[in-house]
Nucleic acid binder design. Structure first.
Length: 260
DNA sequence: ATGGTCGCGCTGCGA
């Protein structure tokens, strides 16, 4: 059995103790991290390799940054989402671990519906669809995982009325996410828990965590060949309740072993 | 309550 987890850590340097504690207890075979908020040189690689993880990362000073940690060798495939050579944000890394292709993705937040940042988010989502289509043609197992900054359905929102039309739940963003599902990807958490209300992010403000005012915006999207192997999936709420927690918490799935 | 709280890095920006 192989356990794959995604976690927006909101700065790996500020979160190192929390992340190490989580890795020790959750023990994923592959961890996809987002918002490491540092360059490759600043990344605390020694501490993580001390837990037997190999590392592939796409870093940037101050903002964004994504990484793949794995207990088996990682073959780096891409460190940017194709389709916009002018996009210099560190938001996408893709690699292969054995026969499984994984991507760690940090979709732009979008700030406000209709803003310039929102248009950038929609462009990124369109480029992501193109990459998904390319990979689907190969008919191989892959997982597109990360912080999508989209709560796909009202079941993924603590108060759908209050959030109606807002960033992360707007119809245009949701239509992109549905398209990923419609062309063949499986939302691992929703496949295992069809009716559950589960969140992966709670705002630091307004006591959102204490009041469980969350959204489910972190997702593991499986190709058909990966979904064939899906055994279990869940959200690990424990890290969000710790001191100095990220505003996100990890989401994981388990696949039965593929052929070597 | 268009507020609230983090992280980065030194001033306000991004989330």
């Amino acid at each position: 059995m192989m356990k794959i987890a995604t976690f927006n850590v909101n700065s790996i340097k500020a979160r190192l103790g929390n992340v190490l504690e989580w890795l020790r207890s959750a023990d994923p075979d592959i961890a996809l991290l987002q918002e490491i908020k540092c360059t490759e040189e600043e990344f605390p690689g020694l501490e993580l390799s001390g837990l037997k993880y190999q590392i592939a990362l796409c870093g940037q000073k101050t903002y964004n940054g994504v990484a793949i940690l794995a207990k088996s060798p990682i073959a780096l495939e891409m460190r940017a989402l194709p389709g916009d050579g002018g996009d210099d944000h560190a938001r996408y890394i893709e690699g292969k671990v054995g026969d499984l292709r994984v991507a760690s993705i940090y979709v732009p937040n979008g700030q406000n519906v209709g803003s310039e940042k929102f248009r950038y988010k929609l462009g990124f989502l369109a480029r992501l669809e193109a990459r998904i289509r390319e990979l689907l043609e190969r008919e191989e197992p892959f997982i597109m995982s990360g912080d999508y900054n989209i709560a796909p359905f009202d079941l993924d929102v603590h108060d759908p009325q209050a959030w109606r039309g807002q960033i992360m739940v707007s119809p245009e963003e949701r239509s992109w996410f549905r398209r990923y599902l419609n062309i063949g990807l499986t939302d691992a958490y929703r496949a295992i828990h069809p009716d559950a209300l589960g969140f992966s992010w709670w705002d630091y403000r307004a006591g959102a965590w204490q009041r469980d005012m969350g959204l489910r915006i972190d997702h593991l999207l499986l190709s058909p060949q990966a979904a064939d192997r899906l055994q279990d999936a869940d959200i690990d709420r424990d890290p969000r309740g710790k001191d100095k927690a990220s505003d996100h918490t990890p989401v994981w799935c388990k696949l039965i072993a593929g052929r070597a």
